[in-house]
Amino acid sequence: DTTKQPALRLSRTKNLHFAKAPFPGFSAEALIRESDTAARIRSDEFALILLDSGNHSAKVVAKKILNSLLSPFMINNQQFSIGSSIGIAIYPQDGSDSDTLLQQADRAMYFAKNNNKAYAFCTPELDEEGKRRLEIEQGLRKALIENNKTGPVELTLVYQSKHYLHDNSIQGYEVLIRWQHPELGIISPSEFIPLAEQTGLIVDLSRWVITQASLQALQWEKDGIKFKNLAIKISAIELINFELAQNIISQIDATGAQREWIEIEMTESAVMKMPDVSIKFIEDLVNAGVLVIIDSFGTGHSSISYLKTLPASYLKTEVSQ
């Protein structure tokens, strides 16, 4: 009925990384009317369409969703709490088609997330920042696809040597990722890694890094180049995947590389966010022959006594200035 000119509200939530099934206690359908629509766009992205609604109605629904996510829930006997950010775009003022409205809702969502707000409406001021974020997200998705093909690549790995202080001999290498965007130029990891974590692309990105680093280690071994091991950082967000350790082991094995050539590096803060899950993850890797490094140890709230429970291979501490 075009005479009603219904308002379209699109809300997208983030940090809901449970691809196989919805988590207990949350049902978007229970929070909206029969005339509204709830959809899962990707594993960690959801959209709502609220017909014949005003700003107030959108706020009410957003608050209901946020409140429903406050209660902790259990998965595999582990307790989790979920945070979420919601962006709201309005038809027709924020866009006249679904693609534009989704992009505008994305911009509002990222604004809410970056400014510690529960939800935000789309505004003209968000356009420039949102356009770049969207361009980087889309570019990263494309780069990950293209890097798995033959031809020019945008993503590359560089290897930074680690040295013993007493004789300056090489102890190993840290694996660093670089991105040369065809139009935006060099994009700093400090910009695209957080975005990858927020969009869930960090999973594919880490998988690519582990595979490429393992292949490089294998090639160096064949060429007689001594490198000892390669250290690869993983994100705290990835720890929510209970099969992460086995996936990493399988990736290394699939390349033909030796497990002891690879070090998996994670920060102390990542460990402390989910200590039980982290310890199990570290144990699985170490027992399989993969080295594990705890980075920035001593900068968080853990104590030296906590060392007894960490089966890590090495610790890295921050030097105070």
Rank of each mutant, 00 (worst) to 15 (best):
L307I: 07
I264A: 09
Y91K: 06
S27R: 12
L315G: 08
G224I: 09
P311R: 01
A39W: 15
A39Q: 11
A28L: 14
L102G: 05
R178C: 03
I249E: 07
V209W: 02
T309W: 02
L126G: 00
G289E: 06
D295L: 05
M272W: 11
N15D: 15
Q251R: 07
A112Q: 01
G224E: 07
F46G: 00
V292A: 02
K308E: 07
I90C: 09
S11D: 05
V175I: 07
K14M: 08
S84H: 02
L102K: 11
G25Y: 10
G300V: 02
S188P: 04
S296L: 08
F23V: 12
D223W: 05
L239Q: 06
G95I: 06
H181G: 13
D36G: 05
D276N: 09
L134D: 09
A288Y: 08
S57Y: 05
I202N: 04
Y91S: 06
T150F: 12
H17G: 04
F18C: 08
L215T: 05
K308G: 01
Y306K: 02
K280F: 02
L134F: 14
A89T: 04
I136Y: 04
L285R: 02
L101G: 04
E174P: 04
E34I: 11
I248C: 05
G130V: 02
P182G: 03
A254C: 03
R132W: 04
Q138T: 11
E34V: 12
I225K: 12
D167C: 10
K233F: 12
A30E: 15
L70N: 14
Y119K: 03
Q321R: 12
S235G: 08
L285W: 00
K64H: 11
S96M: 13
H163S: 13
L8T: 07
I65M: 13
F121D: 01
L69N: 06
R42M: 14
I304E: 00
I225E: 10
D36R: 04
Y173N: 01
M272S: 06
D36I: 06
K316Y: 10
H166E: 13
Y314T: 15
G172M: 07
I170R: 06
V290M: 04
L16M: 13
N77P: 00
K113M: 09
K117Y: 09
E135W: 09
R33Q: 11
L205Q: 04
E260T: 13
K131I: 12
E260K: 15
T37H: 12
K20C: 08
L205T: 05
V290E: 02
M74G: 00
P311I: 00
K63C: 06
T211W: 01
I249Y: 07
Q180F: 08
T123M: 01
I82Y: 09
L201M: 14
V277Y: 01
S161R: 15
S35F: 05
R141K: 11
K273H: 13
K162F: 07
